[in-house]
C-alpha cells in the first residue's frame, strides 16, 4: 500500500514535470487524491524556492586557489623517472644536506686542511723535529701514488737531494755528520738508477740528471769533508767515491749513446742493424736496474 503511494507520488511528480497539473495527476488516482494533493502542493512550493547562484568572485577565487594547488601538486608530486631517482639518490648535494653527513664532510675537510698545512710546514723539518716523521710519511704516500716509472725515478732523485739538504742542515746546526742521512741519500740515488722501466727516448735526459745530481752530491761532500769529525771522514770519502763513480758511469753511458746515429734502429748500408751500446742491445730500455754493473 505504502509502496504504491510512494510510486504514485513519484510518477505524479514526473508527470507534472512534463506539464500536467496537480488536478490532472490526482484525477487518475482518485483513491489516493487526499494523500497526494497536499504532498504535490508542497513539491510545487519547494520548487519555487529560488536557486541561489554563487557570486562570480567566489567561483573565480576558488578556481585561482585550485590553480595554485595544481601548480604546486604538479611540481612536488611529479613522479620521477628511474634515472632521476638514481640521480637524486646519488646526488652529493642531497647526501651532504643530511646533518650527520654534512658534519662528517666538514670534519674530513678540516682534517685534510690541517694535514695539508702540517705536510707543507714539515717540508723544512729535519731529523729530531716533531714533524719530520710526517715529512717521511708524505714522501712515501706521494711515491705510492705515483705510477709512472720516470716520475718515480725523478722522485727518488728528489728524495736523495732532500736527504742531502737535511744532512747539511743538521751538520750546520750541530757540527755532526748524520751518517744515516748520508746512507739514505746514496740509497735513494741508487734506487733511482735501478728504476729500469724508463722509455729509451727519455733515458738520456734522466741519465744527465742523475749524473748531475751525483756530481753535485760529490761536490757538497767534498766541501764539508774538512769540517767532518776525523772518525767519519772515511765514510764521507766512500760516499764521495760512490758519487764520483756513478757520475762517471752515467757520463760514459751518455757518450756511448752519442756515438750511434740518431736513427739507431734503421739498418745500415749492409742491411744489418747498427751497433747499439751494450747497455741497450737486448731491448729498447736502458739496461740499468737491479744488478747492473754501474760501479765499473
Amino acid at each position: 500500500m505504502e509502496r504504491d503511494i510512494e510510486l504514485l507520488l513519484d510518477n505524479c511528480i514526473n508527470e507534472m514535470r512534463k506539464g500536467k497539473s496537480i488536478y490532472e495527476c490526482i484525477a487518475e488516482h482518485p483513491q489516493y487524491a487526499s494523500q497526494l494533493q497536499p504532498l504535490l502542493r508542497l513539491v510545487q512550493k519547494i520548487e519555487t524556492l529560488p536557486q541561489p547562484e554563487p557570486a562570480p568572485e567566489a567561483i573565480s577565487g576558488t578556481l585561482i586557489n585550485l590553480g595554485h594547488h595544481i601548480a604546486q601538486h604538479s611540481t612536488t608530486t611529479e613522479k620521477p623517472t628511474a634515472v632521476e631517482k638514481l640521480r637524486k639518490k646519488s646526488s652529493i648535494f642531497n647526501i651532504i644536506r643530511r646533518p650527520k653527513i654534512a658534519w662528517a664532510f666538514s670534519a674530513a675537510f678540516l682534517f685534510l686542511v690541517v694535514l695539508f698545512s702540517a705536510a707543507t710546514i714539515s717540508a723544512n723539518s729535519v731529523p729530531g723535529d716533531i714533524l719530520y716523521p710526517l715529512k717521511l710519511a708524505t714522501e712515501k704516500v706521494k711515491f705510492l701514488l705515483t705510477f709512472n716509472s720516470e716520475k718515480k725515478a725523478e722522485l727518488r732523485l728528489t728524495f736523495s737531494d732532500k736527504r742531502l739538504q737535511e744532512m747539511i742542515a743538521v751538520f750546520q746546526q750541530s757540527g755532526k755528520l748524520d751518517t744515516t742521512l748520508l746512507k739514505e741519500m746514496l740509497d735513494e740515488a741508487k734506487l733511482a738508477l735501478e728504476e729500469n722501466k724508463i722509455p729509451i727516448d727519455k733515458a738520456s735526459i734522466f741519465a744527465a740528471k742523475l749524473s748531475h745530481v751525483n756530481a753535485y752530491q760529490k761536490d757538497v761532500l767534498e766541501k764539508i769533508r774538512p769540517r767532518v769529525n776525523p772518525s767519519n771522514r772515511r765514510i764521507v770519502d766512500e760516499a764521495i767515491n760512490m758519487c764520483d763513480s756513478r757520475s762517471r758511469w752515467m757520463r760514459r753511458m751518455m757518450n756511448e749513446e752519442n756515438e750511434i746515429s740518431p736513427d739507431s734502429s734503421a739498418p745500415d748500408s749492409t742491411g744489418s742493424p747498427q751497433q747499439m751500446p751494450r747497455s741497450k742491445q737486448k731491448s729498447n730500455r736502458w739496461q740499468w736496474g737491479p744488478g747492473c754493473d754501474w760501479m765499473r
Binding site: 505504502e2 503511494i5 510512494e6 510510486l7 507520488l9 513519484d10 497536499p38 504532498l39 508542497l42 512550493k45
Partner: peptide
C-alpha cells in the same frame, strides 16, 4: 525504491509540520 520512500517520508514530514499547514 529507497529514494522514493525517503522522498515520500520527507514530504509527509513536511506536511505534518504545523507551519506548513497554511501553505497547503
Amino acid at each position: 525504491g529507497a529514494v522514493r520512500a525517503i522522498q515520500f517520508r520527507a514530504l509527509t514530514a513536511l506536511r505534518n509540520m504545523s507551519d506548513m499547514e497554511k501553505f497547503i
